[in-house]
Computed example of a mutant assay.
Amino acid sequence: MKFTKLLASAAVALGLASAAAADTTKVGFIYVGPVGDGGWTYEHDQGRLAVEEAFGDKVETFYQENVPEGADAERAITQMALQGADLIFTTSFGYMDPTNNVAKKFPNVKFEHATGYKTAENVSVYSARFYEGRAVQGHIAGKMTKSNTIGYIASFPIPEVIRGINSAYIHAKKVNPDVEFKIIWVYTWFDPAKEADAAKALIEQGADVILQHTDSTAPQAAAQEAGGVITFGQASDMAEYGPMPRVSSIIDNWAPYYVARTQAVMDGTWETVNTWDGISTGMVEIGEISDAVPADVKAEALAMVEALGNGSYHAFTGPINKQDGSAWLAEGETADDGTLAGMSFYVEGIVGEIPN
């Protein structure tokens, strides 16, 4: 009789455990770099931690870091789906096709791809208007450069990166007609050695301001070592390098989006969306502008942040020509999202070609 009761108790316990497991929403994250990169992946992981904080034991999160873009990504995403993930965030542009390939095989799993444009019934895409932050950085850079040479460490020649270069250049040139951009393409998102080498090369070419669209703090360290060079935090605040060389930053705040999309899966209300938010929603934040920036320049930059946030100013407002001199935006005309999303040209004044 006692044995029967034990079996019954065990069965009840197993049943409760199974029910609890069934009630837990599993959320996975695929990262292109390490969570300790101090930039892009670090901020995505802060979003993951925010999901845990918001939902407690109702969620289980897990991640894989340092996943190369391409075939390795498809294997990693597949493995995550096989582990029972209900929702998977894939957080780099090169994961776009792998995400969609895996999504076809797992129609009951929801996928969210960062910075891409291909959606499906169970695939959403999301990105941030980083170019708004670049406009602010360009203004500060143009005002503060003494050599009139601004260096830019670019990752891959995709629209997101090209948009940022153009936005920064337009706003630097607007306040300093003598400004020149030197651009080095490093073909990586995260490689501290390559990023440091690029920063040093740009400084040797006379750049006293360095902007970056890569994920590590190595350019900050290189600038600090050189002395007298201004930098901006990328994706994360990188405040440990303030007040100089880091004078401000673009901060990617993914937490509210990750919490909302996890909630939607829990509620059964998740549907395919294409999200592209910026300063207005707080997905893009401008890190504190340090006292190394003159007070009047800081005030101008903060006014631009406010105008971008309330929609009274657009970072791409004409007149703007393309690099070849052909007209793009007329006086007062603003760029449409379609053109920005597929941007594949430099604006007039930038020297050099966009690599294939």
Rank of each mutant, 00 (worst) to 15 (best):
M1H: 11
T4K: 15
L7K: 00
L14I: 10
G15S: 15
A17K: 02
A20V: 15
A21K: 14
T25F: 10
V27S: 00
Y31I: 08
V35T: 14
E43N: 14
H44A: 09
D45N: 14
R48E: 13
N66G: 00
I88E: 00
M96F: 12
V102F: 01
A103C: 08
K105F: 02
N108Y: 06
K118Q: 14
V125F: 01
F130D: 13
V136P: 13
H139F: 12
I140H: 11
K143D: 09
I162M: 05
N166R: 03
S167M: 11
E180R: 01
W189P: 05
A193P: 11
A199V: 04
I203E: 10
A207H: 02
S216R: 01
G228E: 04
Q234G: 10
E240N: 14
G242W: 00
S248Y: 09
A260T: 08
G268W: 09
T272H: 10
W276V: 00
E285M: 15
E285F: 04
K298V: 07
L302A: 02
G309N: 02
G311L: 11
T317K: 04
G318V: 06
P319V: 06
Q323T: 13
A327C: 02
G332S: 02
G342L: 01
F345R: 05
G352I: 05
P355F: 06
